[in-house]
């Protein structure tokens, strides 16, 4: 099947491997990612203010592109996913807001939240199916103890994201099991890494990240996987002494599509 794909700015720069392995894994699992044309940066963080119109237009354009192709819109980066999904939600549910947005884009067809937005993880769970992923695994991960790190953006606000139980999610844990590894449950996996505050107050981000790494290790983690470039940056920068990798990279390894030069 073919789906629309929104990579986002970071996946074309600092997080190229997240992007690359997303393509490779999808191909192996029978899904073709079609990058939408002329996408613009989502802005990284969703403004909840009802009078913030302009900052949501790039997301609306991406959503319209998917709608016009009658495809679901797939995101990988947690930041993009959160912004686009929340934007789609207000376009569906806040008539006044949607009207304002549509007036901004007067020459185009009105958009009222018709597109469906999936995170790559949801694509694996709900479209491909974890049982199919498991069947496709050629290099099972040998019971390695892996901690999934969700951060805040994938799960909250739950009323909009509706991905999983926001306080005890299992979508990444199920993926870890499907890849033949052992998921490590730790409570801080849905706490914030510090996010963008890393830019101007790195100390604050350090505290947040340390809370997460410490908790994951205490519960037995040998590796952390994440979907978000900023999470990965914060965890790595703040002294994670166990590997922190993108979940698509690990999936590529399990599916046997990871290239040799990446050093396995």
């Amino acid at each position: 099947m073919k789906v629309s794909y929104f990579p986002g700015c970071t996946l074309k720069n600092k997080a190229k491997e997240l992007d690359k392995y997303s393509y490779l894994c999808a191909e192996k699992l029978g899904v073709t990612l079609e990058e939408i044309e002329e996408w613009q940066c989502c802005g990284g963080v969703f403004s909840t203010a009802k009078d913030e119109i302009a900052s949501k237009l790039s997301s609306v354009r991406a959503l319209k592109a998917a709608k016009s192709k009658e495809q679901p819109l797939i995101t990988v980066c947690s930041g993009c996913h959160n912004v686009i999904k929340q934007t789609n939600y207000v376009m569906q549910n806040d008539k006044e807001f949607a009207d304002k947005v549509n007036k901004y884009m007067a020459e185009e067809e009105a958009y009222n939240g018709e597109a469906e937005v999936y995170n790559y993880l949801e694509l694996l769970r709900d479209v491909v199916g974890f049982d199919k992923v498991k069947e496709a695994v050629t290099n099972p991960l040998g019971g390695k103890k892996i901690a999934a790190y969700y951060g805040c953006l994938l799960l909250r606000p739950n009323s909009v994201m509706k991905m999983d139980d926001p306080e005890n999610p299992k979508i990444m844990e199920d993926l870890i099991s499907a890849m033949g590894a052992e998921p490590v449950i730790y409570a801080n996996r849905n706490e914030c890494c510090g996010g963008y505050i890393a830019l101007e107050d790195p100390k604050a981000a350090e505290k947040r990240s340390n809370d997460i790494i410490r908790n994951a290790k205490a519960m037995g983690a040998e590796m952390i996987i994440t979907a978000c470039p900023l999470c990965k940056y914060n965890l790595v920068k703040n002294g994670a002494d166990i590997p922190v990798v993108y979940f698509t990279e690990l999936l590529a390894e399990a599916l046997g599509v990871k290239e040799e030069k990446d050093g396995e």
Binding site: T10, N13, K14, G44, L199, E200, P229
Partner: peptide, 21 residues
């Protein structure tokens, strides 16, 4: 912004900070 940057900082951090600040 320049003074805050390091080699690894993802674009996401910069655009998010701009949007917030």
């Amino acid at each position: 912004v320049v003074k805050y940057l390091d080699e690894d900082i993802p674009q996401q951090a910069i655009v998010s900070a701009f949007r917030k600040y």
